[in-house]
Design a protein around this nucleic acid. Structure first.
Lengths: 108, 108
DNA sequence: TATCTATATCGTAATATTGCAATATTAAAT
DNA sequence: ATTTAATATTGCAATATTACGATATAGATA
């Protein structure tokens, strides 16, 4: 025991959970906010923006990439990161459904 | 080491991450989907809907409650749960900003 | 009161995440 | 070819999460 019982849930439930989980850390939110602030691809200064060591930042970037939240293009000897808004849109659509249902509910 | 360095990030970054983290498990997504499907408060049958033992479900409900995603009202000897769409809306607003920025970005 | 039903809490094992130092890799610059 | 700069990987310790059996709690019902 201890491991998430992924196989017992639907693909969609697992996909939504994976994206949300990747966003569930303040360092990863800070990375995204930096990408928003600059409003273009970032090549390199993410480590300097965060209060974390380089390997830790690299690991967080990897998780965001695995979840499809950011994309990374190799650009010379650095890497250019930017947000993949399509992935965020999947969550957004899901949340809109929740908000919509919440507004129509009959109690609480 | 090992613990998240919460103190190094802003309150907003931590708040967003906390809500996203609570949604980052398929069982908790399944709970929310059940609440949506029924479209009203649920008093009791959540345990029967999930492939998990009662203490595990109770723990997941507690996490959703702590993050403000669901509300629970005592109703006789059972508890009535429903979604707090205001909390989801916080995330939704945040993500809309990301999508908007993504659409305007200059590269990738 | 005794019992049943619903939910929460405790204790604990298995597993996952976080963070970083050390090291590896890769491409550019000299 | 060597050095420099940027990023990734490895290995490991600290901490957190997940899951569940056992047990506790609290309201309803007989």
């Amino acid at each position: 025991m201890g491991a998430t019982k992924t196989a017992h849930f639907t693909d969609q439930q697992n996909r939504i959970a994976t994206i949300a989980k990747a966003l569930g850390h303040p360092a990863r939110i800070a990375i995204i906010e930096h990408l928003i602030k600059v409003n273009e691809c970032i090549c390199g200064d993410i480590v300097n923006e965060l209060p974390l060591a380089q390997p830790t930042v690299s690991q967080h970037l990897k998780e965001l990439k695995n979840a499809g939240i950011i994309k990374g293009n190799i650009e010379g000897n650095s890497i250019c990161y930017c947000i993949d808004e399509n992935t965020i849109a999947i969550l957004n659509t899901y949340f809109l459904k929740i908000i919509d249902t919440g507004a129509k509910k009959k109690c609480c």
